[in-house]
Amino acid sequence: MDREVNRDQNQAREGSPWKGLGVIIAKEMADHLTSARMRILEILIVLTAAGTGYAALQNISGFGNQDEFLFLKLFTSAREPLPAFAGFMGFLVPLVAIALAFDAINGEFNRRTLSRILSQPIYRDALLLGKFLGAFGTLALVLAAIWLLIFGIGLLGLGVPPTAQEVSRSFLFLLTTIIYGGFWMALGMLFSVLFRQTATAALGSIAVWLFFTAFWEILANLAAQSLLPIQHGFLEELMARARLELVLSRISPNTLFVEATVALLSPAVRSLGLILPFELQGAILGAPLPVGQSLLMIWPHLSGLFAATILLFALAYIAFQRKEIRV
């Protein structure tokens, strides 16, 4: 009966677009978790966690346990030549996310499996979202495992249990890292739809990552200098230029992630923008903010990352729906 009704209206597409989604997610995750690519990434990440965790532990013992947030120091404390764990993640997570997504669709094309899969009773929607969620689940799983690893190292090495404040802050850091990974994953996915060659898609994604990591800061700086040149040396001029530079640099997902990380893992940070001395009147310097206040501070950052992820995924979705699947 329903079918007849649909037919008369001749508009509605039969069935749910998510039919088969669970099957695809399960298959993708199984593939990722058993693939050689994932082995390499896992080794890389575990080494990172162990290395930075160990270095941080040694640093912390040197502090004489003065600090209030010892556990958070595990994530932020660095010892030459290694950067801190949080910094390392900002660098590694995009690579892992891209590695999981760059051949999602074009890989199926090249293996000539795409038309066979799409001739099963599922829609393209389910395939694309299933691929994304499968890779995303894998990433979340791996990052959660590493987060627990760092926690374990901390418990063993420090011998003090983390406070609720520390647990919630580091958990929010984990979530932020996963969302950040989602952005690069959506980018890799988009390129995997746009480019037929997997190597091109991988290179394209890496190029965008490199652009934001290495060049965006410089470009933001240059743009601010040329748009708002300092003519008289007034404070207002300097402030305006610094603000513009900050706004520009925040277009980069890297900046968003780094700022969010700083706010989450360093409770004493009370602003991510410019602060003039008079604005600090009455503030107790070094006093930690509650978790809620820190979260409030980075809420725009998280929303921005999330929105960018959804935007990229939507673009990938549109491109994939319009793609001719003939090989």
Binding site: R3, R7, T113, S115
Partner: peptide, 25 residues
């Protein structure tokens, strides 16, 4: 069935073997 509107009904009843069919190696 109409393939543009009811592809699932068709695809669950019809099999397709594409040109140079591929599998997960």
């Amino acid at each position: 069935y109409d393939p543009a509107r009811q592809p699932l009904s068709i695809k669950s009843r019809a099999g397709y073997i594409p040109d140079q069919v591929g599998f997960y190696g």
